[in-house]
Computed example of a mutant assay.
Amino acid sequence: MTTDRKALPPGGVISSLYARGLLDYLRTRGVDPDRLYGPARVAQLDAGRGHEEIPLAEWIAMFELAIAHCKDPSLPLKAGASLHVRHLGVLGHVLMNCETLGEVAAQLGRYIRLLGQIGQPEAIIKGDRVHFLWRWPYDTPAAPSVAQFMLGARAMFMRWLSDRPGLRYDAHLHFPRPVDVSAYEQVFGGALKFGQPDSKMVFPTTYMHLPVAHADDDLRRQVEARAQSMLQRLAGEPELLRSLKTVLSRNLANGRVALADSAGALALTPRTLQRRLEAFGQSYQRVLDEVRRHTAENLLRDPQVSLTQIAFLLGYTEQSTFHNAFRRWTQLSPGVYRKRQFAAAGGRPARRVRRRQRVR
């Protein structure tokens, strides 16, 4: 059940948090993501804090590599069902503090853009049943791996948020029935229908009235204000700048960050790219510095990544060049910045948490 390369969406981005969800799932299966995607790219994705976006086509290609390596066509479904709230960023905290699952569905639709350009969820009530659809927003055919991941995640989160592990859903999938449906039976628990017009979950309307366990009204106001701020930032930043930052983030480690490289990736001439950036009051070097600084600050929070490795991941051939650039950006050396981050966190480096796998 692979995706035709010609069918991959030419545009569109997704939050790097979702990519990290896939990486974490692979680790629970004993698979080293470095072997599939390369140590440099994995380090970049692990270091992200959720504000970065990667091309949607790259994320789909990551699934294809994982499926081929594990020989498991249902891997995206299992990865989606194993997500943790940390893989949703601020949106996860918004959902945790809703009053009911009905409000969860509404807030998911409101803030889904924080997780990328991945389609709009829609809850349609038909009699005593809710049809919770996932709509693919591109002209190309919807990728089966993305549908699996999205519905698997929603099935799991509805159970987790309501503290009702017994919730069951009928699942409608737009792709052909696979040979082995055992994972689908485990994740959804209800009737399975393949080859349908839309991918969706169908369940009783009573589910929408179930309360969210452990919601906190005070925390809710704080996290929703943050989500609104992030949404406004995404809406206010020109598409060209977002696309350029995505291209630069992807190419830092391989050193392909010259103006001509990025212009070619955006199907523009170097002069056209420069002119459009100038119209936004930006320069190519300023944007490159911003991406490098943001990436460096994230990597410096991980004590397992050396300064030499960080210099390499930023595309520098010499550690001294990275050192001088970072001091220019922050007026601090990378070492001092790292020590201050650890001190602010209580004197201990942040530890990466791995959660137990839910579905095999």
Rank of each mutant, 00 (worst) to 15 (best):
D261S: 05
D261T: 07
D261A: 08
D261H: 08
D261R: 05
S262T: 11
S262G: 10
S262H: 13
A263V: 00
A263K: 01
G264Y: 02
G264A: 11
G264L: 00
A265C: 07
A265H: 06
A265P: 00
L266V: 00
L266Y: 03
R271F: 15
R271P: 14
R271H: 15
T272R: 09
T272W: 15
T272Q: 13
T272I: 13
L273Q: 04
L273D: 03
Q274Y: 03
Q274M: 07
R275M: 13
R275T: 15
R276M: 00
R276K: 02
L277D: 00
E278I: 03
E278T: 07
E278Y: 06
A279I: 12
A279Q: 09
A279Y: 08
F280V: 07
G281T: 01
G281V: 01
G281M: 00
Q282V: 00
Q282A: 09
Q282I: 04
Q282S: 03
S283F: 02
S283P: 01
S283M: 00
Y284Q: 03
Y284L: 03
Y284I: 00
Q285M: 11
Q285A: 13
Q285P: 06
R286G: 12
R286M: 06
R286D: 10
V287K: 02
V287Y: 02
V287G: 06
V287F: 04
L288W: 01
L288R: 04
L288F: 07
L288D: 04
L288Q: 02
D289H: 15
D289G: 12
D289S: 12
D289R: 14
E290Q: 09
E290P: 08
E290C: 05
E290F: 04
R292H: 05
R292M: 11
R293C: 13
R293V: 10
R293D: 09
R293P: 14
R293I: 10
H294Y: 11
H294L: 15
H294I: 12
T295F: 07
T295P: 01
A296M: 01
A296I: 00
E297Y: 01
E297I: 01
E297V: 03
E297T: 10
E297D: 04
N298E: 12
N298W: 03
N298D: 13
N298L: 08
L299T: 05
L299N: 06
L299H: 04
L299D: 06
L300P: 04
R301G: 15
R301A: 14
P303G: 08
P303V: 10
P303H: 14
P303I: 14
P303M: 08
Q304W: 12
Q304C: 10
V305L: 15
V305T: 15
V305K: 07
S306R: 11
S306I: 09
S306V: 15
L307W: 07
L307C: 07
L307Y: 11
T308M: 13
T308I: 04
T308F: 01
Q309W: 07
Q309H: 12
Q309E: 12
I310F: 03
I310D: 05
I310M: 06
I310K: 04
I310Q: 02
I310C: 11
